[in-house]
Design a protein around this nucleic acid. Structure first.
Lengths: 151, 151
DNA sequence: CCAGCTAACTTAGACTGGCTAAGTAACCGA
DNA sequence: TCGGTTACTTAGCCAGTCTAAGTTAGCTGG
């Protein structure tokens, strides 16, 4: 097909184009799946960060790649909906900690379960060989989508 | 490690969990990369749809999985920025067609080029073996992220 | 032939989620 | 104790999504 011979100077340029075209479908599908959830994907993502224990605002913002004011607004909404609570740090009175509530935890688990069930269903349709291909590519995909590495 | 023996009833459940965890990084990285572009990823996506010729509003909305009013707003912004023009269909006076302008086309190509360059760079760091693994998984990934198929 | 339904858009209004700039309160160092 | 820095919030802007309601054009059945 399009596997032209002049790939020489750019190993993976062709592959990059292929991936780029596919990424649109990924985004579309993610939106579709997230559509009828009780929490948005951002909210679920933040709740996921809090699963292991409370975090401060700065840590949350950094982990999600957003500015502090964005996280303030996000936590406001989560708090309003009873999914997290704000707390204070003993050491430093400036610090605000955010903790997931039991309700938040329940919602998070249910949401994750639905997402995984969806993916599992899709994977089941693929057949063993294709699943193996994806599994084999996981380490590579990990590196490919690794958070923007510093140097 | 976690590859427990009771995978039997659910081929791919484990893989689904792996993928689910990775998807967050994909989203994060996409946001990061899109951050300093002159057009948003949605705008670029719509422009991409128009590359092959004018489309009507309904077709655009369907293709991007959004409601008509959303597409109206999107096209308003694109038109305001001189990237598309609205037209009328000869047959049916209710129909609005949207066409990409030369400026829109230029911007689209430049944006796509930067995205592909970014991916190419990432892929170059991976090494031949990992690139091959990703290439081998492409057909499977295609099926996995295929738009929600109706039966 | 026209009355009323349907289809294609747009408008209005609300919400999430992102940003910058500016405000406030607490910490820390000289 | 004063001045700078840090941690967060507030205010205000914009993109992008939705639903509900409006407008205009096509279509159909008496």
């Amino acid at each position: 097909m399009v596997t032209a011979p002049e790939n020489s100077g750019d190993p993976g340029r062709e592959l990059a184009e292929q991936l780029n075209r596919r990424l649109r479908n990924v985004v579309l599908l993610l939106r579709q799946v997230a559509a009828d959830e009780p929490v948005t994907s951002q909210q679920a993502s933040v709740l996921g960060s809090l699963e292991g224990g409370p975090l401060r605002m700065t840590a949350l913002a950094a982990e999600h790649g957003v500015r502090l004011p964005t996280m303030t607004a996000q936590v406001n909404r989560l708090e309003r909906d009873g999914l997290v609570t704000r707390g204070r740090d003993g050491q430093d009175a400036r610090v605000v900690t955010v903790e997931i509530t039991p309700r938040g935890r329940t919602l998070l688990l249910a949401t994750r379960e639905r997402r995984i069930a969806f993916l599992t269903g899709r994977l089941a349709e693929l057949g063993e060989e294709r699943r193996a291909a994806i599994a084999a590519a996981l380490p590579a995909l990990d590196m490919l989508f690794e958070p923007p590495g510093r140097t």
